[in-house]
Design a protein around this nucleic acid. Structure first.
Lengths: 244, 244
DNA sequence: CTTTCCAATCTTGTATGCAAGACTTGTTGC
DNA sequence: GCAACAAGTCTTGCATACAAGATTGGAAAG
């Protein structure tokens, strides 16, 4: 737990520390965030933690289980589809509404794609997760509409949680290529094409999910014990423990 | 103040009571919502009011001025344009993503438009304000995507606040016709056309705003004293108070 | 050995208390 | 008469205290 919420200084806010931890996949869906725990980590009282949690709940990032605690959301398959649908609607709508790409905008996109390439080469998966989500936020920022930026940031956070539950393997290269194609279309000034590519890209990612998979409440424990992932342990008995 | 926040029973939540008051324009932008005041109105302690305010702040509906109080937001001209831009993006994107209108959906739209007609005939402006915003929410609901519904509901609340600041007169009939056209296109199954009409409709409404108008902090006091609206009072002296 | 029940513990839900900043208003000095 | 100032009042910010539900662990009964 101590690693998941770095001793970010108080000024940035508890909210952003948690969101940032999610955006870089340092914190898993279903993680319990006890008020007292977080409070002591940040050196404040429960009051402020609670306020932060209220805000995060409004943003669809944590949920409270009455008198049990706060948990990072574990989107259901249905919710996952809604998140992707919402992103398709908003991102495609956004691109279609754009009319020109400034020189600064072009540079921003190039710089971002270069970073993605770098992270892929380095195999830095945590950084990559963060960057893959950020790409879409960068595009929203180009529009200058901070309302949409904030909406998409929260949806991106949820997307990352979704991928942590339902995504078996991370096709980083595929996503990167998708991003490159979108950026290229934008540079050509063909925003309609960029919008269509964006929808395709999101479809691709969504199709890559295994939405039949149930979130595994024992995931972290399983991992701590170095047990095989998912189901093998449950269906087959351990050796030497044979029983008719 | 007592009239603005009806003694809605506790179960529905303080948040929704306030949002509902805004959606039907029973509460004006810039209204102060003191923690103690609201707390006593709802018969709870400041703690719960504060939590509600935190959530509403996250939704862009209230803002806190440090150690001064909570206020219903008064969107600036810039923010107003962003809200409309965001709505264009999302609503158009949503319509474009739709593929069919169910029979139930058709009925919902018809029923809503009938209500609009009724309110226009009755001249019930408060109800009309509510309905005009609701139309767009109904459409989102047809998509079944609750995420987008919630986003649009908050944007609609902000839109109403914007119109209370910058809109001089309420072209209810014009808006209603816009809604009818959109619904008609949807019934024809021509969602692309519906999307375009939606953008036009929002443009129309936005164009009808006078974004140069500054929010008047004395509006409610002025109204209480039955003084002429806006500026006349400030530039001309009261009769009998002539002074060289 | 298994099941049931109860007490201890831990968690959030809510209220309250105190501190500190912002505004108001009356007062003082000019 | 007017400006500067200062005390008082009102507000949120934050911490803490206590109540109540949820969970867990163990003891007791079958």
């Amino acid at each position: 737990m101590q690693d998941l919420l770095p001793q970010q200084n108080d000024q940035t806010g508890i909210d952003e520390a948690i969101v940032s931890a999610i955006l870089s996949a340092r914190i898993r869906p279903g993680t319990r965030l006890g008020e007292s725990e977080v409070a002591s980590l940040f050196g404040v009282s429960r009051t402020r933690v609670r306020e932060a949690m209220m805000r995060l709940e409004q943003r669809g990032i944590v949920k409270v289980s009455p008198r049990r605690g706060w948990f990072v959301v574990e989107p259901s398959a249905e919710e996952a589809m809604m998140v992707y649908a919402a992103r398709r609607v908003i991102e495609a709508g956004l691109l279609r509404s754009m009319e020109a790409l400034t020189e600064g905008g072009r540079d921003t996109l190039h710089a971002h794609l270069a970073e993605e390439k770098l992270a892929i080469a380095a195999g830095d998966r945590q950084r990559l997760t963060c960057l893959m989500g950020d790409f879409h936020i960068r595009i929203a920022e180009l529009s200058g509409n901070t309302i949409l930026v904030e909406i998409l940031r929260d949806l991106t956070a949820r997307t990352i949680l979704i991928s942590l539950i339902y995504q078996s393997d991370f096709h980083a290269m595929q996503s990167h290529l998708g991003h490159c194609r979108i950026a290229a279309a934008m540079e050509e000034g063909d925003f309609l094409k960029a919008a269509e590519l964006s929808v395709e890209h999101l479809d691709e990612v969504e199709t890559g999910l295994d939405l039949t998979r149930r979130p595994d409440p024992l995931a972290d424990l399983r991992h701590s014990l170095s047990l095989p992932p998912q189901n093998a342990a449950a269906s087959s008995n351990a050796p030497g423990n044979a029983k008719p």
